[in-house]
C-alpha cells in the first residue's frame, strides 16, 4: 500500500517535471538543437560561398596547421586566464560591500556601477579609443602624475593592446556580474549574519564562512558564463581594433584576434568558408565544455 502510493507519487511528479520543462524543450529543440546538428554537418564541408564540397574531417586536421587559428587560440586564452578572475573577484567584493545595509547611498552606487553594462557598444568603443589614444585622457593623467615619462602606445603595441582590452572588458562587465551576486546574496537570510555577529565573527570571517559557501551556485554560474563569454569574446577586440580605412588585422600584429573574431572573418571578411568556420566553432565548444566541467567539479556540484 505504502509502496504503491509512493510509486504513483513519483509518476505524478515525473509528469509535472516534464510539463514544466516542455515549453523550453520544444523551443530549444527547434531553434537551437536543430541548427546545431545542421552546422555540425557543415563542419565537414569546405565552402566558397555556395560552392560546397565535402571534405570529411580534414577541416579538423587543417586547424592545427593554421597559424592564424593558433594565434587566435593563444590570444583567447590570455584574455580568459587574466581577465575572468580579476573581474569576478572585483564583482564579488563590490556586491558584498553593497549588500551591507550600513553603507550609505547604496542604490546610487549600485546603479552607477551597473551603468557600463548598459552602455551601447558604439559609445563605449568610441570613448575607449579616445581615452586610450596616444595623446588621450589616460596618458595625459598618467604623465601629469609622473607615473610614466613617455605616453603608452595603448592600442598600437601588441602587449598594450591586450592590456587595453582587459581593462575595457573589466570595466564593462564587472557591474553586470555584481548584479547576479547581489540577487544571490538576497537569498541568504539575515539571521545567519546576525548570529555570526553575536558570535564575534569579523566581517572578513563572515565573508569566507557564510557568504562564499552560500553563494556558491551563483559563483559557479557567473564563472561558467564568463568562461563562455570570454572564449566567445568578440565585441571588444573587434571594435577596439577597427583599424583605419581597411582594418587589416585585429589589433597590432593580430594581437587581439580571438577565436570568435576569426570565425567572423572566415564567414564575412575573407573568402566565405562557412564549413571551416563551423569547425572552429566546435573547437570552441569543446574547450568551453571541458572548462565548464572542470569548474562544476571544482565546485563539487553534481552535474
Amino acid at each position: 500500500m505504502e509502496r504503491a502510493s509512493k510509486k504513483s507519487f513519483i509518476k505524478i511528479q515525473n509528469r509535472y517535471g516534464w510539463f514544466f520543462v516542455s515549453f523550453a524543450l520544444v523551443l530549444l529543440g527547434i531553434f537551437l538543437i536543430y541548427p546545431i546538428l545542421n552546422s555540425l554537418y557543415l563542419s565537414t564541408t569546405s565552402t566558397k560561398g555556395i560552392v560546397q564540397k565535402s571534405v570529411g574531417l580534414t577541416n579538423y586536421v587543417k586547424l592545427f596547421k593554421d597559424q592564424m587559428f593558433l594565434t587566435a587560440l593563444k590570444n583567447t586564452f590570455i584574455f580568459f586566464i587574466i581577465q575572468v578572475p580579476i573581474m569576478l573577484l572585483l564583482a564579488l567584493a563590490l556586491a558584498s560591500i553593497l549588500n551591507d545595509k550600513s553603507i550609505k547611498l547604496r542604490g546610487v552606487f549600485r546603479t552607477a556601477i551597473f551603468l557600463p553594462a548598459v552602455t551601447s557598444l558604439v559609445a563605449y568603443t568610441v570613448l575607449f579609443k579616445m581615452m586610450f589614444s596616444l595623446d588621450g585622457f589616460i596618458n595625459t593623467i598618467l604623465m601629469n602624475l609622473h607615473i610614466i615619462k613617455d605616453p603608452i602606445p595603448w592600442l598600437m603595441h601588441p602587449f598594450w593592446a591586450r592590456v587595453t582590452v582587459i581593462i575595457a572588458m573589466t570595466w564593462r562587465w564587472t557591474g553586470y556580474n555584481m548584479v547576479f551576486y547581489l540577487s544571490g546574496l538576497q537569498n541568504i537570510p539575515d539571521e545567519i549574519y546576525e548570529a555570526a555577529e553575536i558570535d564575534g565573527a569579523s566581517k572578513l570571517q563572515q565573508f569566507f564562512h557564510i557568504t562564499l559557501p552560500m553563494l556558491k551556485p551563483i559563483i559557479v554560474f557567473t564563472s561558467i558564463m564568463s568562461t563562455i563569454g570570454t572564449l566567445q569574446l568578440f565585441d571588444e577586440p573587434m571594435n577596439l581594433s577597427q583599424g583605419g580605412v581597411t582594418g587589416s588585422t585585429t589589433g597590432p600584429g593580430n594581437s587581439l584576434l580571438t577565436m570568435s573574431v576569426y570565425i567572423y572573418n572566415l564567414c564575412f571578411k575573407f573568402m566565405p568558408n562557412f564549413g571551416y568556420a563551423a569547425t572552429v566553432s566546435y573547437v570552441v565548444v569543446f574547450i568551453v565544455a571541458t572548462l565548464s566541467i572542470i569548474q562544476f567539479r571544482l565546485a563539487g556540484e553534481r552535474k
Binding site: 568610441v126 579609443k129 579616445m130 589614444s133 596616444l134 602606445p153 595603448w154 592600442l155 598600437m156 581594433s241 577597427q242 583599424g243 583605419g244 580605412v245
Partner: peptide, 8 residues
C-alpha cells in the same frame, strides 16, 4: 600614430 578611423 593613430588607431582607427576617428583618431585618424
Amino acid at each position: 600614430p593613430t588607431s582607427g578611423w576617428n583618431e585618424w
